[in-house]
Design a protein around this nucleic acid. Sequence first.
DNA 1: CCACCGGCCATACGCTCGTATGGCTACGCT
DNA 2: AGCGTAGCCATACGAGCGTATGGCCGGTGG
Lengths: 194, 194
Amino acid sequence: MAAPSEELLDVVVGLLAEHGFEGLSIRRVAARAGVSIGAVQHHYPTKDALLAAAMRRVDDQVSAELAGRVQRARTPGEALRAVSEGLVPAGPEERPAAVVWLAQVARAAVHEPTAVGYRASWQRVEDALSRLIAAARPGLRAEQVRDEAAVLLALLDGLATARVAEPDRVTGDRARRLVGRHLDALLTPTGDRT
Amino acid sequence: MAAPSEELLDVVVGLLAEHGFEGLSIRRVAARAGVSIGAVQHHYPTKDALLAAAMRRVDDQVSAELAGRVQRARTPGEALRAVSEGLVPAGPEERPAAVVWLAQVARAAVHEPTAVGYRASWQRVEDALSRLIAAARPGLRAEQVRDEAAVLLALLDGLATARVAEPDRVTGDRARRLVGRHLDALLTPTGDRT
DNA sequence: CCACCGGCCATACGCTCGTATGGCTACGCT
DNA sequence: AGCGTAGCCATACGAGCGTATGGCCGGTGG
């Protein structure tokens, strides 16, 4: 199953999640994967290539997870809730991806090649959210839809960041509750009841 | 005015904003400040100390800026808007602080000492927002106040991140508009007009 | 049978890093 | 006047880094 080059990427993600960028070196990746330095070089000629591949992998995994949630949902509203919960890490098992994502943003801020991929991926998420919101709230004007999508995305982003860096202030339960209430308001056209 | 040790911190912030953590070294700081390596060591014995001081400095500057905005406001609502706009970087001149803040979060995720300071500082912001919201919306229950503060903070956080990494998707104007509309809704008790 | 090549390894090169050390100058205090 | 100390500098050391190089090993096609 797991091709050797894929296993290397998992090791990169693990190291990144544990020690951040500073703790990532070819040597460490090789050591943890139980292979030689040359093997790493063979699959990824430079460190940048290795990093880019690892980030793309996390990206793909997250995208696939979200797509699956959308597909399993029966209504746009349900899909919106499922996607939102998928974007905010709740348990420890979702932390590595979130930490890597944080590292990626920080890198994107100062490293243009990273920024290009990051922007494309995030734009896709906003588009997807827009489509779901438009479907769930047919009355909304297109511009309002995009704004609501941007607000929701920023909120999820901020909550995810807080979950990673301040797990005590923003617990998994609290994050879920806050997202739920925001979506309640979003999915309920101006003034309504239960 | 500018003590030599303060100028070093400005250099650190500048380097961090330009090239991130990877681009920061004692040698580079010394070179850009026009002093010797030894001078940097004299004021900050280790790289960690230098980094911590630089982050604390950004923290203090941001805190002072926000405190000033609160003090100049005439109503809690006004203060809330002023603080919110202060937390989302609009122009290029606010970018360095925002990039450093992003770097700090990423570091906090994998470096406990950084995380401690980060959490304390962010908790203070949530508390301040809570007080302002409580003052602006006297009817709200305490728990709801805290939730609204957390939501607002996450939103601002997410928008600030987007402003740094995706300045084209989330322009300064758009960010301002989204924050304004969120605050409109927050400051208007359930169902109202104009 | 042999040439080839993908996959991997061991090692080496050159560089940059954080930090340690020791010395020099200028000023304040007694 | 003399001494201590703050401020700064030049240099050195050891470690870790990314990358380059050249060789070995096993399967496959001619």
